[in-house]
Simulated scan of single mutants.
Amino acid sequence: MSIICGLPLLECVYCLACARWAWKRCLHTAGHDSETWGLATAEEFEPVPRLCRYILAVYEDDLRNPLWEPPRGYGIDPDCLIMKKNYEDTLGRAPPYLLYLDHDHADIVLAIRGLNLAKESDYAVLLDNKLGKRKFDGGYVHNGLLKAAGCVLNAECDILKELVEKHPNYTLTFTGHSLGSGVAALLTMVVVQNRDRLGNIDRKRVRCYAIAPARCMSLNLAVRYADVINSVVLQASC
């Protein structure tokens, strides 16, 4: 009798515990994860606004005659724009991107745009994944984003190698927003793993700034590549 009477009580406790978990989960934001982190230094944050402008520049059809230029411009010298690829150029296998030789900051920058809500190919890249589908360097990564990163590297490997060797004191920066940030992060990892394809570039010259990054790798990889991949999150933007 006592056991039977205790069952409803256990069910109530279980339901309350589940409700509490769901309530806390709904209120949880990415800001809670980073609330105890230290602030970035001015030097660490310095490239971020500039790289955000480069990413926005990918959305323009013609940088010499921009339509949506921000108040202070994109900060890009069109004469130093190495290339700019659109969806037709990538065949939808990767988001559009540009390659810019930034002499003012001694930087070779490959910037990738974010998710285009009107492009089925972007959704195809994003949805090409399932838990545990793709292993990489002892961890797991997003399959579709890794494939997109591979497409970009295969297409631009020769020109990147040429620029890296021609400008040995320049850094090589991969950056992107949202979907593009995931491609940029995995592209950075692939480059670090295959530095011989870019003339054995020093790992210290390679870096990534992922703006509002997509979740694209397991925690062990995020920790292992933390020296080259920087995630930039505004409050709960992820």
Rank of each mutant, 00 (worst) to 15 (best):
I229E: 03
W68P: 02
D128A: 08
V164Q: 04
C15N: 14
N86D: 15
V152N: 08
E46M: 05
H105V: 06
E44W: 01
L99Y: 09
L221M: 08
V125I: 15
C18H: 08
S218K: 09
L9C: 14
A185C: 05
T36C: 14
V183F: 12
V164Y: 03
C80K: 14
S181F: 02
L163K: 00
R64S: 15
I82F: 03
Q235S: 11
Y123L: 15
Q193M: 08
A210M: 03
L91K: 12
R20A: 14
G73R: 05
D128W: 03
R197G: 00
E88I: 06
C5E: 12
R20F: 13
L91H: 14
L115D: 01
I108D: 05
A106D: 11
I112M: 12
L67N: 09
D62F: 03
E46S: 07
K147L: 09
R93W: 04
P95Y: 10
P95H: 11
D196Y: 11
A214H: 01
L56Y: 01
R197W: 10
L198Q: 06
P95Q: 01
R207Y: 06
L10D: 05
I211Y: 04
G38M: 12
D227A: 01
P96H: 07
P66T: 10
I82L: 04
G38D: 13
G73N: 02
L51P: 05
L186P: 06
K84A: 05
N143C: 13
C5A: 12
I3R: 10
G92S: 03
V141I: 12
R50K: 11
A222K: 13
T36H: 12
D128Q: 13
A210W: 02
P47Y: 03
E44M: 04
E156H: 06
D227Y: 04
L81E: 04
C15P: 00
R113Q: 07
G180I: 04
R205M: 07
E44K: 06
G132E: 02
N143H: 15
G139L: 06
K130A: 03
M189N: 08
D89G: 03
N220Y: 00
L163S: 00
M1E: 12
Y225C: 01
L145A: 13
K130F: 14
E165H: 00
S121K: 04
P8L: 15
A184D: 05
A17I: 10
G92E: 06
S218N: 11
E120Y: 12
S2F: 00
K119V: 11
Q193R: 11
S237I: 00
T36A: 15
G138R: 12
S2E: 15
I76G: 00
R50T: 01
C18I: 06
S2I: 13
P8Y: 08
P70V: 09
R72K: 04
L153Q: 10
P213V: 02
C216Y: 02
A124M: 07
L146P: 03
G114C: 07
A111D: 05
C151Q: 05
V190G: 00
N154H: 09
K161C: 09
D196C: 02
A155S: 06
A155K: 09
W37V: 09
